[in-house]
């Protein structure tokens, strides 16, 4: 299945029984240069819409919300030393964490790429 997006500008992509998520290209553009990312601990249970990570630019700190509920199975340690990856490849190498979904039906409420694109244009 392809990428899904939230109104808070997180993306999520299913890969096997795991999902990987991060922040969208639009979000990184709005934030400016990312200087620090605080990632969740592996094993932590996230609730859809709850705080999953914090991303900081020079002038702003923003919470990143979990797009769906689940348990964190891996985090992108590379962001700790190189937070600029969030700017360079937000929807690729700049991923935040992987989670095991607890309720895959939550994905249904999210936007697909076309819908998200249309949503961003309204902002």
């Amino acid at each position: 299945m392809s990428k899904r997006y939230t109104k808070d500008h997180e993306w999520i992509e299913i890969a096997g029984d795991e999902a990987v998520f991060g922040i969208s290209h639009y979000a990184q553009e709005q934030l400016g240069d990312v200087v620090f990312v605080e990632l969740p601990e592996v094993g932590k249970t996230l609730e859809k819409g709850g705080e999953a990570a914090v991303v900081e630019s020079v002038k702003a700190a923003s919470e990143v919300y979990a797009p769906v509920s689940g348990t964190v199975t891996a985090v992108n340690e590379a962001l700790v030393d190189n937070p600029g990856k969030v700017n360079e490849a937000p929807e690729g190498e700049g991923w935040f964490a992987k989670i095991a979904l607890s309720d895959p039906s939550e994905l249904d409420g999210l936007m697909d790429e076309a819908a998200y694109k249309a949503f961003v244009e309204t902002l």
Partner: peptide
Amino acid sequence: LSTREQHIRRDK
């Protein structure tokens, strides 16, 4: 590292 501070993070 001023994102730790009140003028940016406010209640956090």
